Amino acid sequence: MKDGTAFLNDNAQKIADGMIGDAERLRVAVSKGSLGETLIDAGAKTAGGIEAGLRIAEAAMGGLGDVSLVIDRVSERWPFSVEVRSSQPVLACLGSQYAGWNLSGGGYFAMGSGPARALARVEPLFETLSYKDKAKSAVLVLETAEPPPPAVVEKVAKATKLPAEKLTFLYAPTQSLAGTVQIVSRVLEVALHKANDLKFPLENIVDGVAAAPIPAPHPDFLTAMGRTNDAIIYGGLAQLFVKGSADDARALAEKLPSRASRDYGQPFATIFKKFKGDFYAIDPLLFSPAEVIVTAIESGDTFRAGARDQKMLQQSLG
């Protein structure tokens, strides 16, 4: 893809502007920060909801993904799922949606996701991705209960080379309904991220669709984080359409499901406690959908691996 052809931030800005126009219906609060940045609270001091979470997820994907609510009768206790589709999955998921920008500092903790990352390009991941966004405004999604302090706004403005008044921050805590929905909406993204970790050529991934159940929010952060992760790890289903040989597609399918990880088999909150809150000590191969389908479009072969674990979902999701 040529630089600037997808306009991730322009797409996301339209979604954010739509949320501002529908603020009352979406139950989100819109305000201006001290540096002129636009703040959209979707679940911290306002109710937010499922639709707000769906829109945040689409903004996080730079407008290159469709995110919707669907019914999955297989999960009897949790029949409603988030479904994510993208015909540009690498750019939508890794170039935009992945929460890879560390914006912590001074007692504030947040990981940034969304298309502002493609303007800043401060993460090692962008050494793999050739795309460079061109935009006059930028959108960033934060999984937090607090709006970004001035120091973080200034950091984002400097990295994106935009004035603060051209920045829009969408934020909602993990414990909120909107936060829950937008986090589970990363079910396709984690499949792409693991494929990259497995050294599968990203340019060979041409389309993707995925779904995961929506767990109930929980007021405790660790429990809420555990549920959103487990919804993907034990309940996620993803299908990738890839170019290349059938053997390569088969190898990807076999390695991609979460059960290939050494840490598979316990609720995520338990695993997190076991490693004393050190997120990076957890096997990164755990973060992927439970069940994976890989279709080699040039040969027509399809390979399946993994399975959704209803017992683990019942144990974790309540």
Rank of each mutant, 00 (worst) to 15 (best):
G49L: 00
S31I: 00
G114C: 07
Q13F: 11
L256S: 11
G226Y: 13
K276D: 13
K243L: 15
V152G: 03
G265L: 08
A92W: 10
Y171F: 15
F80V: 15
L94E: 04
D133Q: 08
D10P: 00
E298F: 07
K311R: 11
G106K: 08
K2N: 09
A269K: 11
K161M: 08
M1K: 08
T128R: 10
A305V: 02
L286V: 10
P173Y: 07
V82P: 06
A59R: 01
A260R: 15
R262A: 15
L222E: 11
T160D: 00
V153W: 02
N204W: 14
L313A: 03
Q314N: 13
E203T: 12
V190K: 00
P115M: 07
Q13D: 14
R77F: 10
D66C: 05
A172R: 08
L170Y: 06
V190Q: 03
L198Q: 05
T302F: 04
A238Y: 02
G235H: 08
L162T: 12
I71F: 05
F200P: 14
H218G: 09
D263V: 10
H218R: 04
Q182P: 14
V90F: 05
R259I: 09
G33R: 09
A116C: 02
T160L: 03
G107S: 04
P284E: 08
S299H: 10
Q266Y: 13
L8H: 12
P148V: 11
G226K: 14
K158D: 13
S288I: 01
L35E: 13
R186F: 01
Y234T: 07
R304G: 02
F303D: 11
Q88T: 13
S130D: 14
P89C: 06
G244D: 02
S113K: 04
A151V: 14
L222P: 00
A249N: 07
A16G: 13
Q182G: 04
A246N: 05
G62S: 08
E189I: 09
Q182T: 01
A231H: 09
T144K: 10
G208P: 02
